[in-house]
């Protein structure tokens, strides 16, 4: 009777086109990660190596069509967040995002300093491959922070400015938030007042002023602490963290990422 388990409103999409599979699949994924045997810290020569794999469940009502067999997963893709600690004070991220709906397969490579808000460090690279059959098939760009300070992107040898940075706010990337919220829990800051930060969404879109803060604590279906995030050009999303430093659920307008596998 998994369907009858109430979900928190922030990730409850057990209705509409997905009913009742959304809750069942979400809870099955949670059990999968909880039962995962490889939950130990993995130390490399230079520090930790962590890898989290998320299933993308669709939130959206409009236009959702399950492909193929009705008994198959409602999943529409996968996210792999992998990072290694290097030289003690840097985390090198390698994130893959594969979305079967829009056809894009993205790889993000970037570095952050080992601080609570994971400030973005120096330069980064994004590669996109599009599996759709029309003209656009791939794109890549490099980005870097200038001394002005502003964000520069180089797309096919064309340089553009992606925005000026307010130095009073930490600048991070949305993919590093998978470690920011657990760090808040770990530092016992989970219930402090909300905090303003700047986010470079997908390493291309600057959201100059976003707010993160504590949302709620739940015990079912598992024990989790929740946070919210919103800002200019950024719809609210909800981030749920377990007691072991894992971001377990991330729910935004169109999708919910659910942790299914972890290492470190």
């Amino acid at each position: 009777m998994i369907e009858s388990i109430p979900l928190h409103w922030s990730f409850d999409y057990n209705h509409g086109a997905q009913k009742p599979d959304y809750a069942r699949e979400l809870i099955e994924l949670l059990h999968l990660y909880k039962d995962s045997s490889d939950s130990r810290n993995v130390n490399t020569v230079n520090g930790q190596h962590r890898r989290h794999v998320y299933q993308i469940l669709p939130n959206y009502w409009h236009g959702y069509q399950r492909r193929n067999n009705q008994n198959e997963s409602i999943s529409i893709g996968e996210v792999v967040v992998e990072r290694r600690q290097e030289n003690g004070d840097l985390w090198k991220y390698n994130v893959r995002y594969i979305n079967n709906t829009n056809g894009e397969n993205l790889r993000y490579r970037f570095s952050c300093r080992d601080e609570i808000y994971r400030p973005l460090h120096e330069n980064w690279n994004v590669e996109v491959h599009n599996s759709c059959t029309d003209i656009y098939s791939k794109l890549s760009w490099d980005g870097y922070l200038t001394s002005i300070p502003e964000i520069q992107l180089r797309i096919n040898n064309t340089d553009i400015t992606a925005g000026k940075i307010d130095n009073s706010l930490p600048l991070t990337c949305n993919w590093a938030l998978f470690d920011v919220f657990p760090a808040l829990v770990e530092s016992n800051k989970e219930k402090v007042d909300s905090v303003d930060i700047a986010i470079l969404d997908d390493l291309e879109q600057l959201r100059p002023k976003c707010r993160i803060g504590y949302l709620d604590t739940i015990e079912s279906p598992i024990s989790l602490v929740g946070y919210f995030l919103y800002g200019t050009g950024s719809l609210p999303s909800y981030w749920w963290v377990d007691a072991n430093g894992n971001t377990v659920i991330v729910s935004s307008v169109f999708e919910t990422l659910v942790l299914k596998e972890k290492m470190g």
Partner: peptide, 17 residues
């Protein structure tokens, strides 16, 4: 009809290309 969360940024990538 809908799906900006997925399609709009992909459209921008296509136009950038």
């Amino acid at each position: 009809a809908g799906g900006a969360a997925y399609y709009d940024s992909a459209s921008t990538h296509a136009v950038a290309d």
